[in-house]
Nucleic acid binder design. Structure first.
Length: 427
RNA sequence: GGGUAGGUUGAGCAGGUGGUGAGCUCCGCUGACUGUAGAUCAGCCGUCUACGACUGUGGGGGUUCGAUUCCCUCCCUGCCCA
């Protein structure tokens, strides 16, 4: 699709070295260098566009740097999801090695168990889970849809039944903020009401979007913690006018970053990209980071970066890893398939991850069949390494000014990792 | 040698006292998954010309319109007694 030309932008500032090498390991977020201090806004989240999109309008992709309390995040970037204050199957050292510079944790889950007051008493989420890099907490808004019939939304908040014990709980925008302040995440999100675009009529989307806007205002009013950023969430489903209106409204508020929610659901890639092409131009010229919630397959990440998104999170690479699907350039391997039992090759030749450095496909295939715990750790390390390395490749292309022209190569590397695309054959 | 309990689709079972045995759990095969109620879930898992049909209850024989069931015989396994 054609991208509309953006406005002229000032020349890019000097390009700092990317701390994440293309091998995907040993990311080392650090404080921003003195050269970028002049662009600091002094807030809890400082986003700088290091390489803006080209003036010819060939892409909205941009290279950036998001500085938070616990470190700097190079963008475009992917956040592994650690719902229960852990990225399933991984040790924090694994996350560092995989190249994670920021992870996501979940307000709803941690509220139910172990309780946010407890985490607060124990020194906050970073100390609790022994992760000293940035953490973003989801507000619990997604559980409004994922918990389905266990919830009821009204204008004041949302009433949930706990998925753990059936007990009744109620979230308001104010409580979601209080929980996240107790957790001490670097980035908090405003409570929102996403909808499944395909399963909802326009009236439902409009209603949820309007409610999300009211909650956004209340979230800002409730937020106190000066060392914590607060991002607002754009909704609007797949309705172009509602999506654009929502983007304009959220952008009019003094949030530290802009999230695009209600996507990465049951919509098609074309529908999702159309929604981005409506929402992102509304944010053009806005100095804040743009975060598309929930997207995780490499091909999807690439197209969203192309359309101007800086930040992503998803469960996908880690979840599919735990079921034996390993991502390699151009596609994926299903290690549960019989043919891998005799395959002595590493999952991906040259990959620096914990799995590929020492183990064969045959061995990992065996571990999956035996349901050995090491299988989940190795597979998760590999897929996150692949994903974060892919983001690093995108950043390298942006830094060198070759991004639009490098799209075909990046698309080939991304392959299709979901939605019924064929698996790759072993080398 | 005598007695006794058994032999069901890769494994383990359920069922079946003359009237259509393709059920279950493993194992196995394949697929799905995107702000994680998920190391989960779904489909398949005897054969075929496949929305239907056929075969299959240790082997062989018999009775019967009809046998997994009744009778004869043989084989195999567990246990008990010599």
């Amino acid at each position: 699709m054609a991208l509309e030309p953006g406005p002229e932008r000032p020349a890019a500032p000097p390009r700092p070295p990317d701390p994440v090498p293309s091998g995907g390991s040993a990311a080392a977020p650090s404080s921003a260098g003195p050269s970028s201090a002049a662009l600091s806004t002094g807030g809890p989240a400082r986003f700088e566009v290091l390489v803006p999109p080209p003036p010819d309008g060939s892409t909205r992709a941009r290279l950036g740097s998001l500085t938070l309390g616990h470190g700097t995040v190079e963008t475009p970037q992917f956040m592994p999801v650690g719902t229960n204050a852990t990225v399933k199957a991984l040790h924090p050292d694994d996350l560092v090695e995989v190249g994670a510079s920021i992870i996501l944790a979940n307000t709803y889950h941690l509220y139910l168990r172990p309780g946010y007051e407890r985490i607060g008493r124990l020194g906050g989420l970073h100390r609790y889970m022994a992760w000293d890099r940035p953490i973003l907490t989801d507000s619990g808004g997604f559980q409004v849809v994922s918990l389905g019939d266990l919830r009821e939304v009204d204008d004041d908040g949302v009433t949930f039944r706990s998925h753990l014990d059936g007990s009744t709980h109620r979230f308001t925008p104010e409580l979601a903020i209080a929980i996240q302040e107790a957790l001490g995440s670097d980035v908090a999100l405003a409570l929102d009401q996403p909808v499944l675009p395909q399963a909802s009529g326009r009236a439902v989307v409009a209603d949820a979007t309007a409610r999300t806007h009211r909650w956004a205002v209340r979230s800002l009013a409730a937020h106190r913690r000066p060392d914590q950023a607060l991002f607002g969430i754009v909704q609007g489903g797949l309705e172009p006018d509602l999506r654009a209106e929502s983007a304009a409204f959220i952008a009019s508020l003094p949030f530290d970053g802009i999230c695009l929610g209600g996507l990465a659901g049951d919509e098609t890639p074309d529908e999702r990209e159309a929604a981005l092409d409506v929402a992102v131009p509304v944010l053009d010229g806005d100095p804040r980071v743009r975060y598309l919630m929930g997207l995780g397959s490499p091909a999807d990440l690439l197209e969203a970066v192309h359309r101007g998104i800086d930040l992503f999170d998803s469960v996908l690479p880690a979840r599919v890893a735990r079921t034996g699907q390993l991502w390699v350039p151009g596609g994926r391997l299903n290690l549960r398939n019989q043919r891998f039992l005799d395959d002595p090759e590493p999952i991906q030749d040259g990959c620096p991850c914990l799995a590929c450095r020492r183990f064969s496909r045959a061995y990992i295939a065996h571990l999956f069949r035996a349901r050995e715990l090491l299988a989940y750790r190795l597979a998760t390390c590999h897929n996150l390494t692949f994903t974060l390395d892919f983001m690093s490749r995108i950043r390298a292309a942006l830094r060198s000014g070759t991004f639009p022209s490098s799209l075909p190569g990046l698309r080939a590397h991304a392959g299709r990792m979901s939605r019924g695309e064929a698996s790759v054959q072993p080398a």
